[in-house]
Every structure is written in C-alpha cells, then in structure tokens.
Amino acid sequence: MMSVTGSDQWLRWWCIAAMAVGGTLQVERTIVDVLPVRRPCMGEGVRACLVVRWAGDTTWGAFYDDIDGFPYEPGVQYRLLVERRPIPNPLADASAYAYRLVRICHQTRGDRVTALAPVEKGVAECP
C-alpha cells in the first residue's frame, strides 16, 4: 500500500481544482506573519488557532485553517511565503481556500514578538 505525503495530497487537490475550474488555477502567492503563540478560537468547538497578519494588513487575527507543509513550533515567530488556491464547492463551514507553504522567509525563536515591518499587499516573494 502506498502512503500519501503532504505534497502528494497537495498535487491531488491541485489537479481536482484544475478540472473544477476548467483547467485554470487561480493560485496566489502571498506573505503571512505568524506569532509565536496560538490563541483559543471557536470553530467546530474550541481549538488553538495561529495568530497571523497577511501582507497588506496591519492587524493580527486568528487563522482557522492549516498550511500544508508548515512545521509550526510554539515559541517561534515566522514570516512565510504561502500559496493560496480556491477550493471548488467548499462545505458550508469549511474554508474556501487551501494553503501551502512555499518558503519560510524568516524565523525568530523566543516568546517576545519581533517587530517585523508589515509587508505591502501584492508582495509574492520573501522580502
């Protein structure tokens, strides 16, 4: 029996998405900053969400989804380059997007938040 890795699963979803939208994938690359601690959030019950700031934003908020390939470690602040792609026909309470790690641009260990300058919207490579 063959095991499915994260990248295999991503490729499978990628192909399904391509077929669902007529062969055109609407994949967007963006920068996201991740704080070194999670915070409680409410989804399907209470869980611990990442706290993130997206390129173009100055405020931090809870992130309810997963980022495929992202090895989050508590106590480490990250700046990531991620790909975001639409999920065709998502379930009612599910995310409309899937996320995949492209690269860890920056990481700092420690409980203090390092003052990373916000990134402008539209930046699609590590600053």
Rank of each mutant, 00 (worst) to 15 (best):
M1H: 08
M1K: 07
M2Y: 11
M2T: 12
S3H: 05
V4I: 14
V4L: 09
T5S: 11
G6Y: 08
S7N: 09
D8L: 01
W10A: 08
L11Y: 08
C15L: 09
I16L: 07
I16K: 02
I16R: 05
M19Y: 12
A20N: 09
A20F: 00
V21I: 02
G22Q: 10
G23Y: 10
T24L: 13
Q26K: 07
E28F: 12
R29M: 09
R29I: 12
T30C: 11
I31A: 09
V32H: 02
D33H: 06
V34W: 01
L35S: 12
P36T: 13
P36K: 13
C41T: 13
M42V: 15
M42D: 12
G43K: 12
E44R: 14
C49H: 13
L50N: 10
L50I: 11
T59L: 13
T59P: 06
A62D: 13
A62R: 14
F63G: 04
D65P: 09
I67F: 10
G69H: 04
G69S: 06
G69V: 07
G69T: 04
F70H: 04
F70N: 00
P71G: 15
Y72K: 03
V76K: 04
Y78C: 00
R79I: 01
R79V: 00
R79Q: 04
L80K: 03
L80H: 07
L80A: 09
L80G: 01
L81F: 09
R84P: 03
R84L: 02
P86H: 06
P86D: 03
P88Y: 11
N89Q: 15
L91Y: 08
L91P: 02
A92M: 02
S95R: 00
Y97V: 14
R100K: 15
I104M: 01
C105W: 06
C105N: 15
C105V: 03
Q107A: 02
Q107L: 01
T108Q: 12
T108D: 13
T108N: 14
D111E: 08
D111V: 11
T114P: 04
A117W: 12
V119L: 04
V119W: 04
E120H: 06
V123A: 07
A124P: 03
C126G: 02
P127E: 10
